[in-house]
Design a protein around this nucleic acid. Structure first.
Lengths: 353, 353
DNA sequence: CTGAAAGCGCTTACAG
DNA sequence: CTGAAAGCGCTTACAG
């Protein structure tokens, strides 16, 4: 191919030519590296402006054989935390897409029932050489300590699934919990009569710490704020089927006329199991998350609606946010709320997590 | 940087070394170009297999300064076809992402009320030099003629928003219309009583040709197939507000006890306008598409639910499908149905088209 | 049918 | 503080 014929008109070469310097010096200015006299720097910067220079990222990645290491820190996947399989799949998908650009993703997992496991992993991560990290800040204080250390090292971090505001994260990607509760109330309100009562169920080992469950409940209550008497609420800290069944049965006995149950997380399958066993029909059941067990009950019409928030996309976009920031040097939205999807028996097959 | 130190171990160079040929010959085999003896070809192919060679797409695009031209052919955006702004935005987004890879997108638009305009544009496209095309096959026969010509020229094409099956398109990206109607019925069924009747409204100039409206109606009816008497249906071919109001008013008068209206496309705003004007409260109104006008009525609770199918994503994924196929040489899903999203007053703010 | 060489736009030691 | 040169992994005329 002949040179100079259809050469990129505004590349480093052209800048160097106009500034009467070598391309190495231009490169130093572009990347803000030291070793350029103020005078030369200004001259080159001006030309970059004039030409509206856009670096060719592809050539850049090809030439610099630098590998970027991203880390993720999320709960490990278990029967109780099946949810996290989806974000992990999204992370995998993102990695597949940007591997060609020389990006590696190191995976760290912690036990959602153990703060110690979280802390242990953060220490590991700080020892390793990473350029950016995506994490689920499930434990608030521990996450604050960790991100302080990251800040010190100038390593950008992205929060996923739940947020800690004002922590200077690169961004937050996940649900707006309050509004997802509010929406659930709206949907339920369509399906029952004004005299009907509603049972709100929180199922979790440590409800005190689970800000996110409480945020959903707040949103739900806020919708019915002129009618608070319609809501009965129970907290269930023993998450096995027997305990859930017992508590729910008690509540239903105590308050007649409950026509809808809202479970604030994915444990809605436990309640579904109870309703199915007892042959209770005509109870509207609404809960969270696109998990196989929940979908099964959705298909059997035991669960009526599932609220879902694109868990896979959360993982995908979390990684891509780091990529945008570190590779493309492009600006990143500070907060990116997921849509609040309403999944029923009739549209779940089309839902892409 | 020292050579040979951390050189890509399985690149064309290594293949050439093992096969004792030049990299030019290796390149010929990789791209199935002629001018290689059968013997050499086989030898090289074997080595490619052994090394599980994965070409470096980035280097490839950088070296080959070839520009790929994609074309799109979709309805022009007007007050009546505001829908198409969203796919167009998605196309723009995709183009921005892959421009660096040397892809250009030529935009062609046609008038949804004029077959002639469609045909005219297809002729233009066939005269231009394009490598792939994304189109909305709104006019069936004309689209068949067009895709026949494309097939002849070996140009891949992607259908968007509505499908023509068995046309050897690279893929279809869009809604499953039947099921979106079925889902609408499911949602309405939750919100009204068994004795209530439902009005189905088709608003379109040429309902005969609009297979897609009819497919939605079919899905809707199929949900109520044991109870067909509950459904009253009207077709409105004059799409101005006055005509719609008149027809709907007549239908409501003729059949008392209608408690829900299902409009099979985005013209639901027309019906909403009527209901609001007449001060009719308590009528459940369900329709299609995330358009500003519809959202306004959703916020005022005149429209209760909008069924949406990610129009922007349709455009984005359509372009990316061509990219996957032509640049990455990766396989592409034959059919990719969009999710069937249920949008209400309480979650529309979080919907990303 | 095959190979040597220049080139894509940028980065990176190295030398001065 | 600055520049010449080699290199990233692949493609492309061109010459034989």
């Amino acid at each position: 191919m002949k040179a100079n014929q259809n050469e990129q008109p505004n590349g480093v070469k052209e800048i160097a030519r106009r500034a009467k310097v070598s391309i190495a010096t231009v490169d130093r200015v572009i990347h803000n590296r030291s070793g350029v006299s103020a005078k030369t720097r200004t001259r080159i910067e001006k030309i970059i402006q004039e030409l509206n220079y856009q670096p060719n990222i592809i050539a850049s990645r090809l030439a610099s054989r630098k590998v970027l290491n991203f880390a993720i820190l999320i709960p490990s996947v278990s029967a109780e935390t099946a949810f996290w399989a989806a974000p992990l799949a999204g992370i995998q998908q993102a990695e597949d897409e940007i591997r060609q650009m020389g990006i590696k993703v190191d995976r760290y997992f912690f036990d959602l029932n153990s703060k110690a496991s979280f802390v242990k992993q953060t220490k590991q991560i700080l020892k390793s050489k990473i350029d950016g990290i995506l994490l689920a800040p499930s434990f608030i204080e521990e996450s604050i300590a960790f991100t302080d250390a990251l800040k010190e090292k100038n390593i950008p971090y992205v929060f996923i699934n739940s947020d800690i505001p004002n922590r200077e994260s690169l961004c937050y990607i996940g649900p707006d919990l309050f509004h997802s509760g509010y929406l659930s109330a709206h949907v339920i309100n369509y399906c029952i009569q004004p005299r009907d009562k509603i049972l709100v169920v929180n199922v979790s080992h440590e409800i005190e710490n689970h800000h996110h469950l409480l945020r959903k409940e707040e949103g739900f209550r806020s919708y019915f704020k002129d009618n608070e008497k319609r809501i009965v609420k129970i907290d269930i800290r023993q998450t096995n089927d027997r305990s859930v069944e017992k508590k729910v049965a008690e509540a239903l006995e105590e308050t007649p006329n409950i026509k809808a149950i809202f479970v604030t997380n994915s444990r809605v399958a436990n309640v579904a199991h109870y309703l199915e066993n007892k042959g209770k029909k005509g109870m509207l059941l609404v809960g969270y998350d696109f998990l196989p067990e929940n979908i099964a009950y959705l298909q059997k019409s035991v669960i009526d609606f599932l609220i879902c928030q694109k868990p896979q996309e959360q993982g995908y976009r979390g990684i891509m946010a780091l990529y945008q920031h570190l590779v493309m040097a492009a600006p990143v939205e500070k907060v990116s709320f997921m849509p609040i999807d309403i999944i029923t028996r009739e549209n779940h097959a089309y839902y892409k997590n």
